[in-house]
Computed example of a mutant assay.
Amino acid sequence: MAKIAQYAAGRDARRASVDTVLARMRAFRSDWPEGDGIAVFNRVYLTVTEELDRCVERGGFPDRRSAVTLQVLFAERCNLSAADTVAAGGRAPACWRPLFQFRRHPGVRPLQFALAGINAHIGHDLALAVVDTCRTLGCRPPDLEGDFDRVGDVLTMLEERIREDLMPGPDLLEIADPLTHLVGSWSLERARDGAWSAARLLWGLRKLPSLAEEFTERLDAGTGLVGRCLLTPLR
């Protein structure tokens, strides 16, 4: 009975954590104008988080506990944390900085904002979230590989939908040509592969904090550079 009660308490705590993340993301919708680049990504990632939550509830992950922990830590590292930092007068991490700098630029289209946010979240945040999850649960990255792959599958499915929803129609073909070229140069699959390699490397460097910190800074800066390219104004 004690084990059952402990499991139920843990499940309730994890459910509360997911609900808190979702509530914050939904609250942001009323804080920013619809065309704001941060708002565009927030709407996209709210859809991702809701879909991941439904997938967990349906039993779509090998280990529910690790999946929810990864989901929450992953979501908390996205623009929620960056937005709090900027609101407090600080600087966002390098990977998120281009999105905050160009959030109101009239020459940047919604699809660019969405992909730049996904790039920051996958290219930088996902690797750190995997390491955070390992430390929280006392496991190693290989123990999370199944959950990592399932998260990636959900993201890939939703990325295709996002591209279809935010891509200009045929009547805007002249504008769409450079946009098609620009967004076609970025691959979520390659970003996922890079995130998994980065997570494994960071885990291997956990007893070498100075090297781990340097690698994290380089990862942040490199991801930010890709994001800046994705936000190239097209008009």
Rank of each mutant, 00 (worst) to 15 (best):
D31M: 10
L126N: 02
N119T: 10
W196Q: 09
L111A: 05
E174Q: 03
T216C: 08
D165T: 05
A2V: 13
A27D: 15
V44K: 00
G90K: 05
R161E: 14
T49H: 05
M157A: 09
V18E: 08
R228Q: 13
R104L: 15
A23P: 10
V40Q: 01
G59E: 08
L99W: 05
L99N: 12
T69L: 08
V48W: 08
G138Q: 15
V108S: 09
D165G: 05
R29M: 12
E159F: 01
V21Q: 05
G60L: 04
R109G: 06
L137T: 11
R104D: 15
V68G: 04
L52W: 11
V183E: 06
A127G: 06
H121K: 01
T20K: 10
H121M: 05
A23W: 05
D84W: 00
A27K: 12
P141C: 13
V86M: 06
D177A: 06
P110Q: 09
K3S: 10
A221N: 12
V226K: 09
F61K: 05
D177T: 13
P209I: 00
L225Y: 04
R218G: 08
A5M: 03
P141W: 08
D53I: 00
L225A: 15
G184I: 07
E76M: 07
P168C: 02
Q71C: 11
C139D: 13
P141M: 12
W186D: 11
I175G: 09
K207S: 12
C134W: 10
G37K: 00
A83D: 11
A27F: 01
T133R: 07
L230Y: 03
P142D: 13
V56P: 00
G152H: 03
L144E: 12
A129K: 04
L211E: 15
R43P: 02
R103C: 14
S187F: 02
D147M: 06
R11S: 06
N119F: 00
A75N: 11
P170A: 09
F41G: 07
L70A: 09
L182M: 11
A92E: 06
G60K: 01
M25T: 07
D177R: 11
I118Q: 14
K207V: 04
L230F: 01
A114C: 08
F41L: 02
